[in-house]
Amino acid sequence: MNENMERKNTSGRIAAIAIMTAVTMVFTYVVRIPIAPTRGYINLGDVAVFFTAFTFGPFTALISGGLGPAIADIVAGYSQWAPITFAAHGLQGLSAALVMIALSRRKFAEPVAGLAGMIVMVGLYLAGGAFMVGFAAAAVEIPMNILQNAVGVFGGFVLSRAVKKAYPPVSRLAW
């Protein structure tokens, strides 16, 4: 009986991670909001990472948060960034979810968790980028990464609340 329950738990977890990885990849690769002044764009990968962290918990956020953007990097032709992306976004989701659990039911849990995720992601991209292209060139990316994270925290928080309200059984999928 216990073995059967354990197997069911594992398949549920694999399903959750696989589906959220696909969602994160599509949010990163396909959904882009152009920013008029710079002709650049914000991708919504971070929205999916924070949504997963706030909704599904640390382990799903770690794997799907890392894997989704890494696959997007490979498909987009930037596979050289994939290992750094996997670590940066995976640990971003993990840290946000862990802080969220630690501060559960406190007033500013989501923004603080988002800030923790942002610091981890921006720090890891800076460290990885400095190793690959030098500190000065890597530092240029910091403002854009912070902006993307800010959009991610806000979007992830709003979407998590909306999905939990519209489909309450989603809370049972967290672990």
Partner: peptide
């Protein structure tokens, strides 16, 4: 936002079926 919410609900609903 309404599009993203719809996509996420569709995705989340497919998890139990996949499991």
């Amino acid at each position: 936002f309404p599009v993203l919410i719809s996509v996420l609900i569709h995705a989340v609903k497919s998890i139990p079926a996949l499991a």
